[in-house]
Amino acid sequence: MKGVVLDDAAVLLADGDTVATAITDLEAGRTIETEDLPDDRTVLEVAEPIAFGHKLAVTAIDAGEPIAKYGEVIGSATERIEPGEWVHTHNCESNRGRGDLAEGSA
C-alpha cells in the first residue's frame, strides 16, 4: 500500500499527514514505536480506544488548524488535539458543503 505502516498499528498515508489510520483495533495505552513518526518522535502512546479504520493524531494539532491525510486537507480541528488522540467528528469538521455557513443563511 502507499504510505508507511507504523508498528503494525496504523498507516501514515503521506509525508506531512497529521493523522494515521488504525489498521487494527487499538487499546488505550498501547505504544506505537517507530522511527517513521513526525517531529522526531519515536514513541506514540494511544490515548483512548481507537477502532479499526479510525484515525489518531500523530502530532499536536491546535484548534482551527487543518488536519491532513493523503497529503491533503480533510478538515479543521475544532479543539486542540494531542498526539495519540482519536480524531473524528467530535474534534474535526469539514470545510466544504457548509450551506449553514453560507452568507445570508440563518
Binding site: 479504520g53 480533510i74 478538515g75 467528528t89 469538521e93 470545510n95 458543503g97 457548509r98
Partner: peptide
C-alpha cells in the same frame, strides 16, 4: 450543512470523518 448526510452515518462508523 452537507455534514448531515455526507459522510453517511455508516461511513462515519467506518472511520470517515468529513466529505473531503
Amino acid at each position: 450543512d452537507l455534514r448531515g448526510t455526507q459522510p453517511t452515518p455508516g461511513n462515519q462508523e467506518g472511520g470517515l470523518t468529513t466529505i473531503e
